[in-house]
Design a protein around this nucleic acid. Structure first.
Lengths: 147, 147
DNA sequence: CGAAATAGTAAGAACCTCTTACTAGCTTGT
DNA sequence: ACAAGCTAGTAAGAGGTTCTTACTATTTCG
């Protein structure tokens, strides 16, 4: 059992950053252990906002809250490394849709499994009830903040 | 009232990222509105881990989990802009202590006030009890993750 | 049709972080 | 006491991520 400091004065920002960065680090380590050593945290948002039918670059950029140019840089890299592919968008001649290749889908599955393991560990530590509360509260906050 | 999706399948990483990034964005906006337009999110960790007596570069780097060189880059910038100053460490001729100037302390006060406002808003939305639970759960997680 | 908006790319710079390598000062074992 | 090793910090250079400004091609709309 870990001794928790009851006088922990850290600000909310730090308290949110710690578990978030822990997740990012664990996923990167887990993917590297599975052989995906060329994926960096910046690429994760691409997988996170992907859909089976594919997504446009502009939509990905908006979802990740970065510029189209920055997202283009990330997607170009993922495409060179074989994780994504681009197809013309039949409904709009200016656009192309970005999709995961099989290799990309495998990354997605692996990442989800790592995340399930993390969630199981946290649930062990916190108890299922507090874990469910945490998830629910974060969902509520996210819904509020996205307005 | 916002409709929250009860089927929200977003992963825990995303749910933690959203409020964390919201805090970072709000603090940056608030500081910019107060005239501190030259401060970027990367600099926040310096203020976060500062102490009145001053802190050594190495200690700041460890706290922020980046290299000494990277922290040196951030602190050099803050010093050029007048937010921090360095004094020789009387107890160790190799070391210097980094402290906030008055300008730096004002940034700290401003940032804390912004954070208090954010916490008040969140507390309004969630209710005080859930807000306290959130804080407590995050502290617990942070303690576990830090060993 | 013509004007405005949108999808995406190009070029270049700024920013943040890392690795490797170094200097100066401190600590320790004998 | 002093050489060997450790620690604080700096230097140089590179890579990765993001931004701004500017552009082309295509679509949408008055």
């Amino acid at each position: 059992m870990v001794a928790r400091d009851p006088e922990d004065r850290r600000m909310l920002g730090a308290l949110l950053r710690i578990p978030f960065q822990a997740i990012v680090a664990r996923i990167q380590e887990g993917l590297a252990a599975a052989g995906y050593t060329d994926l960096r945290p910046a690429h994760f948002v691409v997988f996170q906002h992907m859909r089976p039918e594919g997504v446009r670059l502009t939509e990905l950029a908006e979802a990740a809250q970065i510029t189209k140019q920055s997202m283009g840089y990330l997607v170009d890299y993922l495409e060179r490394e074989g994780y994504t592919e681009r197809m013309p968008d039949p409904t709009d001649g200016r656009a192309r849709v970005i999709r995961l290749t099989e290799r990309g889908k495998d990354v997605e599955r692996t990442a989800r499994e790592i995340l399930r393991n993390i969630e199981a560990e946290w649930s062990d530590h916190l108890g299922e009830e507090r874990m469910a509360q945490l998830r629910e509260t974060l969902r509520d906050l996210a819904a509020m903040l996205e307005r």
